[in-house]
Design a protein around this nucleic acid. Structure first.
Length: 436
RNA sequence: CGGGGCGUGGUGUAAUGGUAGCACGAAUGCUUUGGGAGCAUUUAGCCCGAGUUCGAAUCUCGGCGCCCCGACCA
């Protein structure tokens, strides 16, 4: 992608009202645009990050047998009444809309009702189970107070997985599998998370579980053991900072944190309400045992920025960066321009020639073909070196390549990792090997 | 929903009762080019409504919006 054609530009000044780090940096970098409190447009750079997170999640969900579907955002009232949640619980934060008098709909805040109802129509026998069904979709919740940029929105991206089992044991096994899968997802997104016990939330007598990311920008507080034997959400914890870990006797710590994901044992609460039965091997009718598992996708993007940034900008983890390489040219002499252009063409094998529109980015490709390297090429002639460097620092692409007269004199390009201070010179002929 | 803060060009700000100004951005031209460059010209603004006043960005009331704290958060 040529930066000269990239839809958005960076901003030098931070919007006055924003206090949270993720909102400031994402807005300044041109990743997102705020429509209103808790509602954002994802601009090209932000959309790329979002899609990359989604794809990681999709891969990992498919790996544990998840089947992807897409459920409606607009939902009928009667299903919510069956579980009593039209009025109570999540119903209190549900956007409700009046169609014609007496005909109300909900804007989906979650999908237990919808999916369990569908399951009740299709699943009849133990032979139909177990099942793991997920979707990636925009959710709506009337938050009493949207805040902290992408961390708590009224409209947000979420992956929700629901599992259906014939036995408690089968459910437990799967619950553990999802737990491992979530750790993999979060790790691929660059995040270290702490598995944390939280309130049963009316689903279970025991705990539900949250994947918490330590961050001052978070709105949760957890009490945890630094060796991760123990962690509880402060809301429900009987332990406190300074107590001993029940496993290793280490002193417990307390910290602000961001809830990146959560998993819930649902038992038979929804299958009972929706009459989701199956006939077991022994011919007996039984209720399906369920679990539900969420990861906030837009929130994850915010969380990553909260964790990975410095005073100059964002530092994206490799797998979810909008591009892998930020190629910049400085001193717009004919030689530099020519060399940078050639490098761009070489690295991004399908790279479009100069055109009037930006076109798809390297991550999406043209006709299904993706580039060898995803390159954002700063070909803007009107920008000074300082401005280009500042943009690199703000946008936070992992690897920066610089072509200038100085580097060309040595037949080289300069390579710098966003995470490191070190700058190296690499011969142009060797650059591909160095990068891969 | 309670408490606090705040609404001035696209962004950041100044003017506190008397001509709305500055910087960045954007546009044109020339000069520049290793950390947000220079000169010249141009562009664009007082959240909405009512009131007080000779006169309101400024004072009062109401509304709307944004941020923060709290309550809430499957």
């Amino acid at each position: 992608m040529r930066q000269s054609q990239l839809f958005t530009k960076t901003q030098k000044e931070t919007p006055r009202d924003e206090k949270s780090v993720n909102a400031k940096l994402l807005l300044r970098g041109g990743f997102i645009h705020k429509e209103m409190a808790g509602v954002y447009t994802f601009l090209p750079l932000g959309f790329l990050v979002l899609r990359k997170i989604e794809n990681i999640i999709r891969e990992e969900m498919n790996r544990i047998g998840g089947q992807e579907i897409l459920m409606p955002v607009l939902q009928p009232k009667y299903l919510w009444q069956k579980t009593g949640r039209w009025k109570k619980g999540i119903g209190e934060v549900m956007y409700k809309t009046l169609d014609s008098p007496g005909k109300e709909f909900a804007l989906g805040p979650t999908h237990e009702e919808i999916l369990t109802n569908i399951i009740s129509k299709y699943v009849k026998s133990y032979l139909d189970l177990p099942l793991a069904i997920y979707q990636i979709q925009t959710k709506f919740r009337k938050e009493p107070r949207a805040r902290s940029g992408l961390l708590r929105g009224r409209e947000f991206g979420m992956k929700d997985l629901y599992s259906f089992h014939p036995t408690e044991q089968d459910f437990k096994n799967y619950y553990n599998l999802v737990k491992k899968s979530y750790f993999r997802i979060l790790k691929r997104c660059g995040l270290k998370t702490i598995f944390t016990e939280a309130s049963g939330a009316g689903f279970t007598e025991g705990f539900t579980h949250e994947f918490q990311v330590i961050s001052q920008g978070g709105e949760d507080t957890i009490v945890y053991c630094s060796s991760f034997h123990f962690s509880q959400n402060k809301e429900i914890s009987k332990s406190k900072k300074g107590d001993q870990c029940p496993v290793c006797k280490k002193i417990l710590k307390q910290s602000k944190s961001i809830e990146a994901g959560n998993i819930f044992p649902l038992g038979t609460k929804y299958s009972r309400a929706m009459r989701a039965f199956f006939i077991n091997k022994d011919g007996k009718k039984k209720l399906i045992i369920m679990g539900s598992y969420g990861i906030g996708i837009s929130r994850m993007m915010g969380a990553v920025v909260e964790v990975f940034h410095d005073e100059k900008g964002i530092i994206w983890p490799k797998e979810i960066a909008p591009f892998q390489i930020h190629l910049i040219e400085i001193e717009n002499t004919r030689e530099v321009k020519k060399a940078a252009e050639k490098l761009y063409q070489d690295l991004s094998s399908f790279a479009p020639r100069k055109r009037s529109y930006g076109g798809p980015t390297e991550a999406f490709g043209i006709g299904g073909q993706k580039a060898n390297f995803e390159v954002l090429y700063d070909d803007r002639i009107e920008k000074t070196a300082g401005e280009k460097f500042a943009d690199c620092d703000l946008i936070g692409i992992p690897t920066r390549l610089v072509v200038s007269e100085r580097t060309l004199a040595k037949n080289s390009v300069e390579i710098k990792k966003r995470r490191e201070k070190k700058i190296r010179l690499v011969k142009i002929n060797n650059i591909k090997q160095t990068l891969s």
